[in-house]
Computed example of a mutant assay.
Amino acid sequence: MPLLHISMRAGKPDAYRQAILDGLYRAMREALNVPEGDEFMTISEHDPANFRCGNAYGVERSEDAVLIQITVFASRTPEQKKALYRRIAELLGENPGIRPEDVFVNVLDAPGENWSVGHGLAQFA
């Protein structure tokens, strides 16, 4: 049950943002075996004055950089995460055309008891 937060500069059309959401969902389905309909994602758009990505770690980022933070159950393997990173970069490169250098992904592991998916219950504790 991944929870995604995507941050990017404001100004891209709806189709561009929808392509990001679609690509991320597809990557999670393929790399993490996320079930169908497990889509909990938000996009936050920021004015240029409120969004900055440096060129640290030998990566030359452009103004089209997207910051993707994914919180998952603490059961994902390093191999699954590596496959996820690759697949996200591939799919976002295909549509909406984001350069791999502009895809920044951070995965946070959370134990099952940290999740309530509705009804005020800890379904995974």
Rank of each mutant, 00 (worst) to 15 (best):
A83E: 05
F51M: 03
G93F: 02
A65W: 01
Q69P: 02
G120K: 10
E39W: 11
T71F: 04
W115F: 07
K82P: 00
P78N: 11
M41G: 07
A110G: 02
L67K: 01
I98C: 01
N55W: 06
P78R: 10
E90H: 12
D109Q: 02
E101T: 07
R99K: 14
R99H: 14
N106Q: 09
G54Y: 08
M41V: 13
P78M: 10
P111C: 06
R61H: 01
S116T: 15
N55K: 08
N106R: 08
C53T: 04
V105E: 04
V117M: 14
I70M: 09
F104S: 08
E79D: 09
R52D: 13
A56F: 15
E60Q: 15
L84A: 04
G93C: 06
D38S: 15
P48H: 09
P100F: 09
P100R: 10
E90L: 12
H119I: 13
Q69M: 05
R61Q: 00
G112V: 10
G97A: 05
D38L: 08
L121W: 09
D102V: 03
S62H: 10
A65V: 03
L121F: 13
R61S: 02
N55S: 14
P48G: 10
F73S: 03
E90P: 07
T71Q: 09
N106F: 06
A83M: 05
G118F: 07
S116A: 12
S62L: 12
D109T: 01
V117I: 15
A83H: 03
G54H: 09
A49Q: 11
R52Q: 14
T42V: 10
N106V: 07
D102N: 11
L91R: 03
Y85F: 11
V66W: 03
Q123W: 08
A56V: 13
R87S: 05
H46Y: 11
I88Q: 00
D109C: 04
P48E: 11
Q123N: 10
Q80A: 12
T71W: 01
W115I: 04
C53A: 08
L32F: 06
N106C: 06
F124L: 06
C53S: 06
E94K: 08
D64H: 13
I98Q: 00
R99G: 07
